[in-house]
Design a protein around this nucleic acid. Sequence first.
DNA 1: CCTGGCACTCAATGGTCACGAGTGCCAGAA
DNA 2: TTCTGGCACTCGTGACCATTGAGTGCCAGG
Lengths: 338, 338
Amino acid sequence: MLSERRLEVLRAIVQDYVGTEEPVGSKALTERHRLGVSPATVRNDMAVLEDEGYIAQPHTSAGRIPTDKGYRLFVDRLAGVKPLSTPERRAIQNFLDSAVDLDDVVGRTVRLLAQLTRQVAVVQYPSLTRSTVRHVELLAMSPARVMLVLITDTGRVEQRMVDCPAPVSEESLADLRARLNSRVVGRRFADVPQLVQDLPESFEQEDRGAVSTVLATLLETLVEETEERLMIGGTANLTRFAHDFPLTIRPVLEALEEQVVLLKLLGEAKDSGMTVRIGHENAHEGLNSTSVVAVGYGSGDEAVAKLGVVGPTRMDYPGTMGAVRAVARYVGQILAES
Amino acid sequence: MLSERRLEVLRAIVQDYVGTEEPVGSKALTERHRLGVSPATVRNDMAVLEDEGYIAQPHTSAGRIPTDKGYRLFVDRLAGVKPLSTPERRAIQNFLDSAVDLDDVVGRTVRLLAQLTRQVAVVQYPSLTRSTVRHVELLAMSPARVMLVLITDTGRVEQRMVDCPAPVSEESLADLRARLNSRVVGRRFADVPQLVQDLPESFEQEDRGAVSTVLATLLETLVEETEERLMIGGTANLTRFAHDFPLTIRPVLEALEEQVVLLKLLGEAKDSGMTVRIGHENAHEGLNSTSVVAVGYGSGDEAVAKLGVVGPTRMDYPGTMGAVRAVARYVGQILAES
DNA sequence: CCTGGCACTCAATGGTCACGAGTGCCAGAA
DNA sequence: TTCTGGCACTCGTGACCATTGAGTGCCAGG
């Protein structure tokens, strides 16, 4: 167990390093923080912290920098979440309130997050699986071809073309549309399969094939999690870490382009509460020198999607966490209103 | 007027510089190209080319590099468009053929372009204004609330919520839906306003307000060019120009995040034929050291949107132009099929 | 008009050296 | 025990300098 003062030293190191981006030494520490002890004492503490693996020195005769483990301890025990100022909150709300549709909400959220944190922002579109159905529309494009349009409570629209095995009449289609909607509107996606299970049986023999095909496509659309979309922004902020440049930034840009990677990244975050993954805690190799702060957001109590920030391990955790949490909260409100 | 050989020298300089990314001198030139003359002669030619502003030297006693003007001449008169190899073409076609919907097509196109050119790819979604209407759907969400869904021939779906001044019956709505579709399906967006102009008059007094509101929203959606979307990819390729780094790359990343800038950029490209904008020819300041190669694509003869590549002025123009043109052609085919 | 030769320029390279921030350790004070 | 001041040591950084070599412009001769 580390003594109270050692923790204080670690906190000071993290804060200074985050501020200056330079290894911090014992003397500078005592000058900039009121630790009440001499540099020599701090040196001893630092030696212990290094033994325990919380800090490291890039080379002999240089200051110390926090390790991933050090940041972890900092986040878990030393750092609070820094709430935003009232003007900031108001600005967020105003900015998000003027969004006109879902794309706009997500787009604004991304820009907002990127600007507030000065880092890379990632926002997942409200996921289909946890939303509820607002409406299902069926349009006959040609006798045997139907367009299926699915509208969610979060305003998202998915559409699929369905080729039926046999022509289907307008009446049957209208019938199906009506019955389908009466069953699924307002229900959660997860419940839909069960709700429509026996629907084909209630149709005439000749239409059953078509009905089954349409329903199959609908279910397919529902479970197709791979289609989850997300938006990212603020990549220009990566250039703020301009030292070790191409080496650090390249794999990050590559990872950011892989939607799969990002979705997995967000997926790993806890459903409720904030998740912070630091450096090597991230499964993806390219993100080993970055931290991810993610949180779920939703129109109700339940999270329908996640959003977060990707930045260097050397980031302002309290501030970032505060911004992420605040934005998530407001986006949730906006979604609930619409 | 520049002599034939001087042009040849310029071509050689551009090619070498693009290959090596280093200023090229007279000696190296004669060694790597069969110009049939001595370095001294080349030096004289280079002096002339420099006087004319086609090349420049970063500092005394260094080789020459092409200026924007030099690249311009190269593109206009010296460079052809390098066609892709047959295997490459086949790979493109296969890759694009397996796309399932519009998002997928655009996504794949972006990745493809980025990979082929090893640069940043930008693909605009088929624009609304030039497309034709496939279907308009009206859904009553509540008595006075209608959801308008617009489906285009390119598979794009736009949806808007409409708050009507007065409740509107299901019958009136169905009526409007039918009449609206019979008038506009298959027509170009640009023609729609005229086609629906007199529609409100044919309705009962009590419904006219609602009908007008719905139509107004429809027209609004049609003209709303600002809503044009695009997708970018391959930003990681920016790190390949790792010399002058943050300075060069930062403004580019910033520009790429501004959809407005990109849309304007693509908008400036000619509707038909390939457009190449080099360095300072780009209006946007952040892109002053990049070149943009753009071309329109579409399902028929007419371009419905544009796609292109953003890279350093020092790029392989023939290869890039070949890739851009080929990809545009195949995307057009895919769109025509669906 | 082309070529070979020559003097000149200047970025890049690499070696040396002094500086200073930072460390670890230890003896003595609290 | 715990903290402190002192001291010797390490090593990255930046300044200075000489060397190198690619590249140039110019000129006289083919």
